[in-house]
Amino acid sequence: MTQNRDFYAGLVATVFFAVILFVLIPIYVKVPSFIPGFAPPPDMWPRVVATVGLVMGVLALVLAFPKMRAASREQVEGLGSRILGNKIHVMRFIGVLIVFAAFVYGMPLIGFVPATVLLLGVLFIMTGKFERKFWMIGLSIIFPVLLYLLFTKVTHTPFPEGKLLSLSLSDLVTL
């Protein structure tokens, strides 16, 4: 199983560093027309690192092959069968991604405190253990509010109030 993981790690690294080297660096690392003195250009270091990463990725793939061949067929499980076999885990992982994305995009709309209250509540639900329901409900509300008070009083951090909330408040004021 470990050899199989090495193969996937090598595959992911090879693809990642190849994309960096051949796609992202040419587009997103601009070389200025004038460089002071004899300083190396800004793309030199990322190119060196991405090349080393690519070589290491290929090396990980190459080193994983003989071990995979040596292992019995039963031991080496393909990516497809692994995903199908762990469908529930994949679904939960996608769930985590959706929750994080919803927090990032929802926070400016509903405000920092309500967004963190919701995030904490949803994460408690996603742990799948409900023996301490009352603790979970209480903490979901009290913990973010306490942190909000701590950070606003101590560091005077201006947390976003949320566009929706500020809209309704200003509407109330107008009324």
Binding site: V31, A39, P42, P46, V49, A50, G53, M56, L59, L63
Partner: peptide, 28 residues
Amino acid sequence: SLVLGIISACLGLLLATVGEDIYGSYRF
């Protein structure tokens, strides 16, 4: 695995280059 360790280090080195460099060029 040393190879996986170097891959991890390369990822760290690359992410550290994001933003403005010492001569004012933007990267990634």
